[in-house]
Amino acid sequence: MNIFRFAGDMFHLISILVLLLKIYATKSCSGISLKTQELYALVFVTRYLDLFTDFISVYNTVMKLVFIGSTAAIVWCMQWHPVVKRSYDRELDTFRHYFLVGACFVLALFLHENFTFQEIFWAFSIYLEAVAILPQLVLLQRSGNVDNLTGQYVFFLGAYRAFYILNWIYRYFMEQRFSRWISCISGLVQTALYADFFYYYFLSWKNNAKLHLPA
């Protein structure tokens, strides 16, 4: 464990909690893509299949449970909470995310570390996390609605990616056996897509700021 990875994990966790709290506090999920949140839930479930078979550390186990729990809570809130679900942009959140699931699974069948059930699902979850932001990006381009996508959420998401890249650089130089190519390359693709999301976030935020200029 190094400080970059720990910070990355903390920022990732905070970004999810910020989103969950925002949805719960405002009882609204307008502007949030349920499909992206469903993909994140699938990422965590398929990545942590070893939750009950491999014990790495208390921190590792607790964080896995918290990631699965908090993302599941967001999906539940957006789909079943009587008040929140009414504000879901169902007609705008139309990205066919099943294609992403299928494509990532096929890729994992070809590109993985070992051809075992657990390893293929692990690689699948790494690829899926990289593209999971797409439905949210498309929804943001269509709606320009950043009401629930707070600046903090975007900041923590960016910090998570930045610190994880620092973590890989650190591990590359510090550990003789660097076998994280799948995580690393997929993580770079993910960070590029996040940068695109941040760009559209900034445009939407700027436009909204202009719209609300004092008359």
Partner: peptide, 10 residues
């Protein structure tokens, strides 16, 4: 002892 899973990252 914890299995040396190469996937110790979250």
């Amino acid at each position: 002892s914890p299995k040396g899973s190469s996937h110790d990252e979250l």
